[in-house]
């Protein structure tokens, strides 16, 4: 397992020299799977490489989520968008992360995985991170009239918003 990871890390580092910012592997850092920090500009290339190029075979997108790093030591970014990938062939997982500032957009991965569609909508709904090029960037869980993004650190924990009337249906869904 560890040899596989080291090989993959060497491969990615040589192929995307300027794009891979940082690599964290189990043993040296408290994580269960290797984490790649990738620059926003290179994220699609890295994901496509991991998905399609034989030998890596991380073809399954488990989830896309995000973390709010507000108040952290690093002031260079606010959010981390997290891509969880799984390889059926290797039976192993890796994690790819992108650091973004507030109001910064991340390119969508919908053309790589259809599963990214709803996952990215959830990230938009909960954290307010937009994905450029997404075909349907609407809220997925909260009411369409909701103000704010509830999983942000600066959203009040008890920020209730109750709507007794039903929300207007999306005209696109009625077609």
């Amino acid at each position: 397992m560890r040899e596989d990871w080291l090989m993959l890390i060497a491969e990615l580092k040589s192929r995307f020299t300027s794009m891979v910012e940082e690599v964290r592997i189990p043993g040296e850092y408290s994580t269960d799977v290797p984490i790649f920090y990738v620059k926003k500009e290179g994220i699609l290339d890295v994901l496509q490489y991991l998905k399609t190029v034989s030998g890596s075979g991380y073809e399954f997108l488990s989830d896309i989520t995000a973390t709010d790093e507000m108040g952290g030591e690093e002031k260079t970014h606010r959010f981390e968008v997290v891509y969880q990938l799984f390889s059926h062939q290797r039976k192993s997982r890796i994690r790819v992360k992108v650091r973004v500032k507030e109001n910064e957009e991340v390119p969508t991965a919908v053309h790589l995985w259809n599963a990214a569609n709803w996952a990215e909508r959830e990230v938009w709904d909960m954290f307010g991170i937009r994905f450029s090029g997404h075909p349907n960037m609407r809220r997925i869980l909260m009411d369409s009239r909701w103000k704010g993004h509830p999983l942000r650190k600066d959203y009040p924990l008890r920020g209730y918003q109750i709507f007794p009337t039903p929300e207007e249906p999306d005209p696109k869904l009625l077609e």
């Binding site: 909260m142 009411d143 209730y160 109750i162 709507f163 007794p164 009337t165 039903p166 929300e167």
Partner: peptide
């Protein structure tokens, strides 16, 4: 949940 509230009211 807050999204169920309008359904319940209806």
């Amino acid at each position: 949940v807050s999204k169920m509230a309008p359904v319940l009211r209806t």
